[in-house]
Amino acid sequence: MSGLLLLAGGCLIAITVTVLGALLALASHLPLDALWLALQQQETVFALRLSLYTSLLALALALLFGTLAGYLLARRSFPGQALIETLLDLPMVTPPLVAGMGLLFLLGRDAPVGSAMAAAGWHLLFSPAGVILAQTYVATPLIVRSARAAFQAVDPDYAAVAGTLGLTPLWAFLLVEIPMAGRGLLSAAVLGWARALGEFGATLMVAGATRLHTETLPMAVFLNIASGETEVAIACALILLSMAFALLLVIRLLAGGKSAGQGQFQHA
């Protein structure tokens, strides 16, 4: 047993050292004054602003669709549910580049959906709106899955009892079920936001990689590494890493507490 623990400890150290090594290599690649200058570059500031703006809008959309869809999947069974759930999980396991290609073909001018949208004056492709679409597309399945689990952890009888207290199903959902699933939904939101912030492949296909137009933080890393301007690339990469670290920390802190729907009767 001690031999197994020793081996496991070795594996843990190897993984930790590799992650830490990559982080330190990135952080120490630029002297501090050069990094400070790169952080103030117009391109870095633009990428940060665009990333925040698009990812927060994508998060709002993904939360709206994902929470409601997750609620339905948690509370009802219907024919074809397994098929729909598998389809919803698909964007999580397919390469984002492939998902982006699908969206590109769906919304291209030659496709019925794309031509109808163009006729209505909606131009999603190769614009910041395309960035939001790509980010929403990759974040929503994560939120659906987490929201479904969060609602499944809440006994549906709470909503039924809320009904006997005069609350309509909508109010019971808003005032009882959502707060009781709150911790899980908050974790879902943080996870979805992290996914949207780091989105690259689908964004590249749907919104393109145009400097100071559709240049999110991951896109800035790609464009600047490709053109040999490592300062901005490293500055953007470090911003992404810091945000990802902070978001992961939040998830860990949220996971540390009990879900509101659990433990209610432990004192009974």
Binding site: D155, D157, Y158, A160, V161, A162, G163, T164, L165, G166, L167, T168, P169, V176, P179, M180, G182, A260, G261, G263, Q264, F265
Partner: peptide, 18 residues
């Protein structure tokens, strides 16, 4: 149920923990 105005005390009480 929300229009019946019937008081219902379930076995598990279902007090809202939040």
């Amino acid at each position: 149920a929300y229009r019946r105005n019937i008081g219902y005390l379930s076995q598990d009480l279902h007090l809202f923990p939040h």
